[in-house]
Amino acid sequence: MSQPATPPLPEDLPCDYSQPQVSAVDASTLPPTNGEAIIIEAPPPSEAPGPGVPARVPHLGHAILFVSFAGFTLLVSQALLLGMSHATTDPQKLMTAAAHPKLLVGAMAITYVLTLIASFFVFPLLWKRSFSNGIQWDFDIARRNAWKLIPIGLLVGFLVQAISSLIPVPKSIPMDDFFRTPSDVWLVTAFGTLLAPIFEEITFRGFLFPAFAIAYDWLSLPRTPAAREHWHNTTGLTLASIIFSAIFSSILFALIHAEQLAHAWVALFVLFCVSLVLTTVRVRTRSVASSALVHASYNLSVFLTLFIATGGFRHLERLAR
């Protein structure tokens, strides 16, 4: 598949650009910025960690904590489900059972739900603001613009599928195991259009994207008192940090799907491009809920095509290459 076109987003999407009042800083002493774009809202002064001082969150430490907890929970949930469903000590049988689609999807669903629940209570304690505000979820923007965002996801999805027929893909890939029986396909469809897009967008666009951008700006910050004061009194991200983070987080987004696609580099490049589209939506709308809605619509287009091609998932043999 070749790179999908990135459809433009409307210019008039509503969002809140408000910033808290902070102490005045001499503009002549501030470090220069290149196309600064505010994408992380500062909390009201009453919620700030200091008197009127906005905090930059989620930073890299928060992202590492979120991903580490999710990884640990996934390992535990897989072990528990495997132990409950297969009372055997044969390593070969355990490995085969662990790769079963229903067990994998069940473990991921448990992991996603538990991680989000824990994050909902833990991160507000660290951020001094709500979880949704910290990751800039902003469901209202997604709801008001759903009629624009859903077609974007569907358009990108159908475009990618149309180009997919031209891409050389291995005859057998691990993802095929999720489409062996109708029950497996229905399970993956529900998981892929409801829970997975929400969790993946919170992970990549809610945590990793701002974390990498914040880290980039911090490392490139001039080591002067004026620059440090400017850093502590603003929440702006430079254009360079946004571009760097969009590319780096999109590379990671593609890599987590590498095993499912048998490391087919062309298919991974397409996923990289799709991730850039999702990041663009997140930046332009300042809403992770918006990119999650586009992501869900993109996944829905894939399953909708599959549903039609297999007669309602009844003739999965038609998928054989």
Rank of each mutant, 00 (worst) to 15 (best):
T89A: 09
V283W: 08
H230E: 10
R286L: 02
H86Q: 12
V302A: 13
I308E: 06
K171Y: 02
I242R: 09
E11P: 01
F66C: 05
P54D: 03
R129I: 01
W218H: 14
F244K: 09
T193V: 15
R286P: 04
W265H: 11
A254F: 05
D138N: 13
A63G: 07
A309G: 00
V270L: 00
F209L: 15
F158H: 02
S119V: 06
L237A: 06
V76S: 05
L268W: 08
I167Q: 14
L166I: 05
S220H: 15
L194M: 13
T310F: 02
G192T: 00
S275R: 09
V22K: 03
H230M: 05
R318F: 08
A227I: 08
I117K: 03
P225M: 08
T305C: 07
R282W: 00
S164T: 09
I39K: 00
H315N: 13
S165Q: 12
P51H: 13
Q78M: 13
S291N: 02
H62D: 15
A70R: 08
R286V: 01
A320E: 13
R286F: 03
S183M: 11
D90H: 05
S23Q: 14
P43W: 10
W137D: 00
Q78P: 01
I135M: 10
L306N: 03
A258G: 03
A262N: 14
L154K: 03
S301M: 08
G61K: 05
L114W: 02
L13D: 00
T235P: 06
A267D: 10
L75R: 14
S2W: 07
I173S: 01
G61Y: 09
L154T: 13
F253D: 02
R144W: 04
D177E: 12
A254C: 04
E200H: 14
F269Y: 12
I141T: 15
A37E: 15
S130N: 11
P170A: 07
S241R: 10
Q260H: 12
V105F: 01
S2P: 05
A240P: 00
A227H: 09
H315E: 15
I202Q: 02
F69H: 06
G206N: 03
L278P: 08
T111R: 10
L155A: 14
A190L: 15
A267I: 00
W147F: 10
A118K: 01
T235N: 09
P14R: 07
P182Y: 11
A24S: 10
L82N: 06
G153D: 04
Q19A: 14
K128D: 11
I152P: 02
L60T: 07
A5K: 10
E47R: 13
P101W: 05
A146E: 10
T89E: 07
P91I: 12
